[in-house]
């Protein structure tokens, strides 16, 4: 088994727009064309109103809802980065619109719930995918 390569995503018909956007260096999330609600993970139809969805640009700005410091190598990849921080980020666009992502170059001791972050599109080792990671934005509150 290759311990150095992180898991690679398998896009499907619902998520293809997300991965096409990151490949182009953009963060686009699923949004209902009718009621304008955002949805992550993406869906073909809006669960609230049944409307058709598409992928639209988001700012990538948000706050840390929660985070962990990964110290035990149970998932392949990033072994040289241990310990590393994974955060769940509440994006500014809509309450409850969230993305998971690594927090790049972050000292675990300086990370906290509520800290502002911004998204950054980075290459995913081991393939052609690009993924959305985050970086602390601004000083600690």
């Amino acid at each position: 088994m290759d311990l150095q390569t992180p898991p690679q995503p398998v896009p499907d018909a619902d998520s293809a727009g997300f991965w096409a956007a990151t490949a182009a260096g953009e963060l686009r999330l699923c949004r209902c064309a009718d009621c304008r609600r955002w949805h992550q993970p993406p869906l073909e139809r809006c669960p609230a109103c049944g409307g058709a969805t598409g992928f639209e640009l988001v700012s990538g700005c948000g706050r840390i809802k929660s985070f962990i410091v990964v110290r035990h190598p149970a998932v392949p990849g990033y072994l040289e980065d241990l310990p590393y921080v994974v955060a769940i980020v509440d994006l500014d666009e809509q309450e409850g619109l969230r993305l998971p992502g690594r927090l790049l170059d972050a000292d675990p001791a300086r990370v906290d719930v509520g800290r502002a972050v911004r998204a950054e599109i980075v290459d995913l080792p081991g393939g052609d995918f690009r993924v959305v990671a985050f970086r602390l934005a601004g000083p600690a509150p």
Partner: peptide, 10 residues
């Protein structure tokens, strides 16, 4: 597919 590439899967 959104979380696993970040090593967040278990």
């Amino acid at each position: 597919q959104f979380a696993a590439p970040h090593g967040y899967l278990t």
